[in-house]
C-alpha cells in the first residue's frame, strides 16, 4: 500500500532545475535505497519527502492526502522521521534530551508507543537499539560525543515517535561496515516487522544492495528506476 506518492513533482533552485516531473509511489513495509551521482538531487528529494521543502510544481501525498501548508508541521513532527546527513542534533542538550525533545514535539503519548514506565525508560531503550549504552552516554551533551555516536543518536531521535516513514540521508556514513549493517538491520526490522516505509539516500553500493528496492536518481529524471 502506498504511503507516500510523488505526483508529477518538479523542483528547481533559482536558475538551477533539479527534479522535473517526477512520479513515484513509496509503499509501507519496504526499505528503499536512493542512489545517484552527486548533484542528481538525492538530498533535495529527501528534503521534499520530509516536508522541509515544497516542490515547485506537483505535490506529495501522504496516505492519499496532499501535504499542504496547514498540516506539514504535523506531518514533519509525527509521520516522518528524518536522519540528516549532518545529524542536526542540538549540541548543548544531552543525548537523552535530544531524543526526548523529538518525542515531545510529536505530541504523542507514551502509551501509544509501548509499555514503558516513563519517557526516560523509553529513551534509554532507543539508545540501546542503536547500539549505545544509555548509562554511559545518556547525560552527555552532544558536543561531547563522537561523530559516530551522534549519527546513532540522530537515528534514535528519528525513531523516537515511531513514524510511518523514515528518511535517512547517508545514515551509515560515519559508521564501520559492521555497525552499518546493524543499523540497516534495525531499518529492515522496522520495515518488515513494523510495516514502516524506510527511504535511505546512500552512496554505498553495499547498503543499497541490502535494500528491498534500489532507485537510481538521474538528473532531471522523470522516473525512478
Amino acid at each position: 500500500m502506498s504511503v507516500i506518492e510523488l505526483k508529477n513533482i518538479s523542483f528547481a533552485y533559482p536558475n538551477n532545475p533539479v527534479i522535473k516531473n517526477l512520479d513515484y509511489d513509496f509503499e509501507e513495509g519496504k526499505v528503499y535505497a536512493i542512489t545517484g551521482k552527486s548533484g542528481a538531487g538525492k538530498t533535495t528529494l529527501l528534503s521534499l519527502l520530509s516536508g522541509i521543502m515544497e516542490p515547485t510544481s506537483g505535490y506529495i501525498a501522504y496516505k492519499g492526502y496532499p501535504i499542504d501548508e496547514s498540516d506539514k508541521y504535523v506531518y514533519r513532527s509525527r509521520d516522518v522521521g528524518v536522519i540528516f546527513q549532518e545529524y542536526n542534533l542540538l549540541p548543548k542538550f544531552t543525548v537523552r534530551e535530544n531524543i526526548q525533545l523529538s518525542f515531545d514535539i510529536s505530541g504523542k503519548k507514551l502509551k501509544e508507543i509501548g509499555k514503558y514506565k516513563n519517557k526516560r525508560e523509553y529513551v534509554d531503550t532507543l539508545i540501546r537499539e542503536v547500539g549505545l549504552n544509555p548509562d554511559e552516554i545518556g547525560n552527555r551533551r552532544i558536543l561531547h560525543i563522537s561523530g559516530g555516536q551522534q549519527q546513532r543518536i540522530a537515528i534514535a531521535r528519528a525513531l523516537s515517535f515511531q513514524p510511518s516513514v523514515i528518511l535517512a540521508d547517508e545514515p551509515t556514513g560515519n559508521l564501520d561496515l559492521d555497525t552499518s549493517i546493524d543499523i540497516l538491520n534495525v531499518f529492515t526490522h522496522l520495515a518488515h516487522e513494523l510495516n514502516r516505509c524506510v527511504i535511505i539516500v546512500t552512496h554505498s553500493p553495499q547498503i543499497a544492495e541490502l535494500a528491498d528496492i534500489r532507485l537510481d536518481l538521474q538528473p532531471f529524471s522523470r522516473y525512478l528506476k
Partner: peptide, 9 residues
Amino acid sequence: GVLAAMGIK
C-alpha cells in the same frame, strides 16, 4: 533550524 525541521510550529 533543527527545531523547525523536527516539526515544531
